Amino acid sequence: MTSERITAAAAGTWNLGDLPVNRIGFGAMRLTGSAAFHHGEPSDRGRSAAVLRRAIELGVNHIDTAAFYFSSLRSANELINSALAPYPEGLVIATKVGPHREFSGEWGTAARPDQLRGQVEENLRQLGRDHLDIVYLRRMRQDSVAEHFGALAELRDAGLIRHLGVSGIESRHLAEARAIAPVVSVQNQYGLDFPDPDTDAVLRACGEEGIAFVPFFAIAGKGGAQGASGTADDEVAAVARAHGATPAQVRLAWTLRQGPHVLAIPGTGNPDHLTENVAAGALRLTDADTARLDARHTRGE
């Protein structure tokens, strides 16, 4: 498929609360370097800025980031600020709090509820904003999210946050959070290569309640933060050949096919990959393609 002239609008739109976004967005994690937010060589600053500006040119109006996305010399939030501020009208920036990461790069214990305000304020500082459009509470193995989510709800009431989401959750955590404050979005690991019955249930529940479901690692699959392996199994490759598409585009298109409330936030520091990812929003899988890939997802291969 020809990618150069396709914009993010081809995927359709969804409202995150009162914020309309195109269903193909951009994940900022890989902007900081080849090893994402792990140890490794930092990215080229000019190339990362160019990717961000090109994303906006291609109609991306939903960027997902976090203050803990950084490498030895690069911070995703500050790259976004320097490349895009003053921010274009309609751009929605979502961030996450909950994990604690030292400046050395080492991960610490989860933030306490009383530490979440500091994390929110750090995101505000880095992004140069006076409020955050969407803040996710990333669950860090807590059995209950009530106390942490309640602390974010207070910051929402104070005007620092516009909308709230939850991430890394099970079905019961969604119900727990919604009893405290409105939830506009759920962000869980999900994709063609990552079957999980409870996550499938969360995805369906979000659709029934009009809540966005935003999967991460939809392309990388089991590779997670380290990225995709670069190889494609026979079934994905066959569907890709039939459409003149790449395996990554097929994975994104299958993800979007799971419901109109499902958004995509593929991340890359490569401008060519960015163009391909955005173009995946125009790839229309047939019912036969979808059934074939659904069966593969269920098998977990």
Rank of each mutant, 00 (worst) to 15 (best):
Y136P: 14
P260H: 13
H39F: 15
L16K: 01
V92Q: 03
D143F: 10
L73Q: 12
R299W: 13
R172S: 10
E301P: 11
M140R: 00
T268R: 04
N123W: 12
G269F: 14
D198N: 10
T7N: 04
G224W: 09
M29S: 05
L164N: 03
E176G: 06
V184I: 11
Q187V: 11
T95N: 04
L164S: 03
S34Y: 13
A50G: 11
L174A: 01
L73W: 15
T246P: 05
P215V: 03
T199R: 11
V135R: 01
D18A: 12
S3G: 07
V202H: 02
A36P: 14
A248C: 06
A264H: 06
T7G: 06
R257A: 15
Q187N: 08
V250F: 00
L252D: 05
L16T: 03
R74Y: 11
G108H: 06
G207K: 00
G168E: 09
G33Q: 06
E276P: 04
R125C: 08
T286W: 05
Y87W: 04
D133F: 12
E102I: 12
P266R: 02
R23G: 11
N22W: 09
S171T: 14
G98N: 02
A9L: 13
H297E: 07
S75V: 09
V214R: 06
P88Y: 01
E170N: 13
F37W: 12
H243K: 00
R284M: 07
G98Q: 02
A35P: 15
W14P: 09
